[in-house]
Amino acid sequence: MSAPIVAVTDLAVDFGSGRTRRRVIEGVSFEIFPGRTLALVGESGSGKTTIGMAVLGLVPAAEGSVEFDGNVIANLRARERRALGRERQVVFQDPYSSLDPTKTVGYSLLEPARAHGMDRAAARTRAFELLARVGLDAVAALRYPAQFSGGQRQRIAVARALMSSPRFLVCDEPVSALDLSVQAEVMNLLTSLQRELGLAMLFVSHDLAVVRQISDEIVVLQHGRIVERGPAETILTDPTNPYTRRLIDAAPRLDRRASTTPETEGASNAHL
């Protein structure tokens, strides 16, 4: 197997300072390989988003390390760390605040290219290609984020993340703010882009059904610690940890019907 792009070792993260300081992530380790997706799954307060932010260097690690291409990020100089922006990118949960409302979509798309000294003409061509790839008209480049729907904005955010041809993408609940039909579109887009580009992905989500479509490996978190990990299908079909099982059982399913369960039959058939 090739070397991992991202390696997280014994990561711990603290929030607050002084007396209010408290540990929110403890002893988290995982590796992500090219073309593969690792999903972080957990409920609110499990620390899944915080780990994603730590991998991107947006929150500092209190202990442990985050390596990118074998280099410990904390040891890099500011310039080298900024250069990493070309290799790793992010798609956030909220499509309404992840694009600068004061900038045109074109500006937002070209910014990563400009930050990394990409050729202007090439960047423009790529921006048009990506807009077309995510299913938007070229005219979109001249518009402002306020003129797009949530799903369209999320597709723009995906296009922006891919502008600098990154090898690693963090997706932080990328579809949980979207309607069902739009959610499917964005998930399809992410799945096929990953296949085409061989992206490594860290996929943060609370929704096990969504995770199933895209991940190879799943890490289940509770209160900032890993409670279970393994290949996606194994975790979803045969979890060993009771919390994981509870998470899977709790998700509402189409095949469990109120109308056919015996104890509710009387009440629900009253009108028939």
């Binding site: 369209q152 039909s181 499917a184 998930m187 799945t191 059904a209 199933r212 479509q213 895209i214 190879d216």
Partner: peptide, 18 residues
Amino acid sequence: SNPHGARRGETLPTIGGT
């Protein structure tokens, strides 16, 4: 378009348009 039960890499049917 409900993702329940979708397999790894599977493409979900979408509605298209808004």
